[in-house]
Write a protein that binds this DNA or RNA. Structure first.
Lengths: 338, 338
DNA sequence: TTGTAGGCGTTATCAT
DNA sequence: ATGATAACGCCTACAA
């Protein structure tokens, strides 16, 4: 491997000059620049990223901490983040925290020692001391899903409340009148907002029944179980809004086993817009998050902080959701959507 | 951030001594060791990973190149790899190649410059020059799915041929007699082996019909399309073996739309054992790969190479598959499996 | 416009 | 058993 010194020697200049042409900073004569460039080609010289990192304190590496890449919500997000990071010349380190406090702490420590340039936190489990731990280390970070809402802590999220309303209104527009809700864990901000949207949309028309709400944990299994419970307690229910797509998938399974005609007898809508919803039969309607955009924004935000040292403008921004109406809600002559 | 020099000063020893206790090599007096250790605690000293990497030429970072983390096969693999890497103190860089030659090349270059300690290649697209490119760079690598079979190139795979036989035999044991096959792209080693297994199992009993085979591209969409084609050309088919689970999912969708009773009229089995198969209704039978184990072995193999400089023993090993019989093949009083 | 030299934080070779 | 000190490869004042 050729070093900067080899290049300097071959081009008969100093390493400083070579460094200048590499980094395009400082004055350098056009002639010498060409000479240097040629030498670099000749020697097939590539700057040593590690050495550069030591000197610069920039590793061009980002880290993504998420609960579990095996959860179908995250691959799409990870993809967006990796794509965008790569676009800017950054590598992406993946960390599965299992929403576990110890693992999270240990990852943060290890990433801090590796001097990653930024950390994206897509996990709900983010205690205040963890945040401060990162802040103290001086590493820029961004959180997703509004895990926390802190001054100076960039966070990208979606309009969960409005999404809840959209889901219910869609169900109503398809003729449902007894709408059940499988909500997520109540200690998640996202669950609560979606739930509130559900409540408000129904209270508006005096149709809210507390017993039509059951609580799952965002997993397929809980969706299956809760849909069964909902329908055994309230056979009259003709529409279900699941707080996320995975629970909707579980609910679909339950509905099919119960021999319910979908959407005629029971319509079903999820939330998130992950691709698995379109692979089911019938395809499941959903309130889609701009997942790719969220990931891309998070990276942009981080890189802004890293490079321009500016705080993220998108901080706290809530992106819009989009209704994706599919077979699980579209009755015969129902309306459609994009 | 405290440096090794700070620790040395506080403990009134030289940096060399501190380095010795950090790395537990060389002689060091018990007393001084304690003094040094205390100083480290006191200053909350953590060795600077980057500096260490520069000196050691070891970054404690592995890279995983795969086609697309969004493909449901890969998150499970990535999870296994990340888990195992972490266990050994390594971080994992994720790279989505989209099976694209240029992207792959550019990743390899970038990873090479980052001096990752090892690369795991889970992509089918691996031309010989790419391999040599990595080999020349001296970075240990491992490939999955027997993408290539080269002397000295560790490769972990499964018994695809036997798997094909298992799938067909299972279908036969459930009473199917007209078994179709949706095979994968013929330029993939895995596709061919599975196909051969299918052929041999049927030829054994004189039941092989070339026209019962159609070709997909491992995607859900192609599975959907090919199942439709298969059944429209051969309505008598009562069993389908899809060469991977994603195509099985697509096929399931097609069968349901065609109002086929599953498994009574048409039984269906996939290949891979990804979790999505158990989330469908009916649940899809499959020939399961030990995905987690594969990932773990790949990492072990790499770390063996890195640390002990020994070639991987598992090189070229083909792991066993396991039949997972579920509702999509289990007729009434059918047999079961683990 | 270009070169010299010190520093980034560790490791490892030699002495002592 | 311990300590100087030269690498590792690059960047960047500061000089020239």
């Amino acid at each position: 491997m050729a070093t900067i010194r080899d290049v300097a020697k071959l081009a008969s200049v100093s390493v400083a000059t070579v460094s200048r042409v590499i980094n395009k900073n400082g004055y350098v004569n056009k002639q010498t620049e060409i000479k240097v460039l040629e030498s670099m080609k000749l020697l097939n010289y590539k700057p040593h990223t590690i050495a550069r990192a030591l000197s610069n304190k920039q590793t061009y590496t980002l880290a993504l901490i998420l609960p579990d890449i095996t959860n179908p919500f995250f691959p799409e997000l990870a993809r967006a983040i990796e794509d965008t990071a790569t676009k800017f010349g950054y590598s992406l380190i993946l960390a599965n925290s299992d929403s576990n406090k110890e693992k999270t702490t240990s990852y943060i420590e290890s990433l801090t020692n590796r001097y990653v340039d930024g950390i994206i936190f897509a996990s709900h489990e983010l205690s205040l001391d963890k945040i401060n731990q990162i802040k103290d280390s001086g590493i820029p970070m961004a959180t997703l899903d509004r895990a926390v809402n802190l001054k100076g802590l960039p966070s990208i999220g979606v309009q969960n409340y409005e999404g809840g309303i959209m889901a219910v209104k869609h169900l109503l527009s398809m003729g449902c009148s007894k709408i059940g809700h499988i909500c997520g864990p109540i200690y998640y901000h996202t669950s609560i907002e979606r739930y509130k949207g559900y409540v408000d949309a129904l209270e508006d028309i005096n149709q809210f029944h507390p017993s039509y709400v059951v609580q799952g944990d965002f997993s397929i299994e809980s969706g299956f179980e809760m849909a069964n419970r909902l329908l055994s307690n309230h056979p009259e229910i003709d529409g279900i809004f699941a707080a996320n797509d995975l629970m909707a998938v579980g609910a679909l399974k339950a509905l099919i086993r119960l021999k319910k005609k979908i959407p005629e007898e029971v319509a079903l809508i999820g939330f998130d817009g992950i691709s698995i919803t379109s692979q089911m039969e019938p395809e499941i309607s959903t309130i889609a998050q701009p997942i790719y955009q969220i990931g891309a924004m998070a990276v942009n935000c981080l890189i802004d902080q890293i490079q321009k040292k500016i705080p993220c403008e998108q901080s706290g921004q809530e992106l819009e959701l989009k209704l994706v109406a599919r077979a699980s809600t579209l009755k015969s002559k129902g309306h459609s959507s994009i």
